[in-house]
């Protein structure tokens, strides 16, 4: 990703925001039953989901005739946000920006309201989970890493404890038949330092957190856990292509209280599909290496349920939950 380009993009984004009021008159936003729609996130201002929502709401007004407000319900790793949304009126005025975190929190800490109390609305993106190493290190491919782990003790990093990254590491370990030490961190930044200074062979994390290092060329991607190659990084193979049958989807979507009317969900189905095609928004999310993965309302609950039960089985098998 070229830096100048991204600055230009930011300027473009701001320009878009400025002309948005004018633009919305030209485009034809779908009529919506609520004037104001609150999008709740568990991340703090400036955090992953927060940035995602604020960027998206800049463009969403073109397709849905409502004003969007981002609300930060931090605390309890999503437990608070889930409670906030589960108890809100089911008229399409409040939604929650979901990530796998809400499934993990539901399972690990059993709050009063869990993911099962929410109605998945639509999926919008899949984040790219990647395996990376330092560029001047000894590893040139995922195979090298696995070979090394077979000969001596490998050292792998996962961005967070009991998370999708950790699950990915465990599954790769099993698929490859190796037993490296898996060191969990609290966030990707901390782990990246340990990959850069050679403490860890590889790190498993989100590509978004690596952008500055990728840009500077100090870090190399070895593989992605996505089912398909990342469009922006065509030479990075998937883990599956590298010979290990592991793939993961770190979803990003919306969920609401149970019982949202079908007319409302239909509006979202249509609007999100159009939104992902929006040229301005496309530029912005491509820069963020977000992979559009639209799942309509009729299929989304099944997807989330499946994700939930897979995760539950994994956590049970490790003894993390009973």
């Amino acid at each position: 990703m070229n830096l100048m380009k991204s600055i230009g993009m930011a300027a473009l984004g701001i320009a878009t925001a400025a002309i948005l009021s004018g633009a919305s008159a030209m485009a034809d936003p779908l009529p919506y039953p609520n004037k104001v729609v609150t999008l709740v996130t568990h991340s703090s201002p400036g955090g992953g989901s927060d940035v995602f929502l604020r960027e998206m709401t800049k463009h969403l007004g073109k397709y849905i005739g409502a004003t969007f407000i981002v609300e930060n319900a931090q605390g309890g790793s999503g437990a608070k946000a889930m409670a906030r949304v589960a108890t809100a009126p089911a008229d399409g005025s409040v939604f929650y920006a979901t990530t796998p975190t809400y499934i993990y929190t539901s399972l690990m800490s059993k709050p009063q309201n869990t993911y099962k109390d929410l109605d998945p609305l639509v999926n919008i993106f899949a984040d790219s989970e990647v395996i990376y190493t330092r560029t001047d290190g000894p590893f040139k491919s995922l195979k090298d890493v696995i070979e090394h782990a077979k000969k001596e003790r490998g050292r792998w990093g996962a961005a967070n404890p009991a998370s999708l990254e950790r699950q990915a590491a465990e599954q790769l370990k099993r698929a490859a038949g190796v037993t490296p030490a898996i060191v969990t961190h609290e966030g990707g930044g901390d782990m990246m330092l340990n990959v850069l200074n050679g403490t860890l062979d590889i790190g498993i994390g989100e590509i978004q957190e690596l952008r500055s290092q990728l840009d500077a060329g100090t870090i190399t991607l070895l593989a992605t856990f996505n089912p398909e190659r990342i469009v922006e990084k065509p030479d990075v193979p998937t883990v599956k292509e590298s010979g290990f049958d592991v793939s993961l989807v770190k979803f990003r979507g919306l969920a609401g209280p149970k019982g949202i009317p079908e007319t409302t969900t239909a509006i979202w189905d249509e609007a999100i599909k159009k939104l992902l095609e929006d040229p301005d928004y496309k530029k912005a999310y491509t820069a963020e290496v977000l992979v559009p993965q639209f799942i309509p309302h009729k299929d989304y609950p099944a997807f989330i349920d499946n994700f939930g039960s897979t995760t539950e089985a994994f956590l049970k098998s490790t003894g993390a939950i009973k």
Binding site: P161, A162, R166, E170, T318, G319, A320, I321, K322
Partner: peptide, 10 residues
């Protein structure tokens, strides 16, 4: 109370 902490293979 620490007896209530789950024992995980993770």
């Amino acid at each position: 109370w620490s007896g209530g902490i789950a024992d995980s293979t993770l």
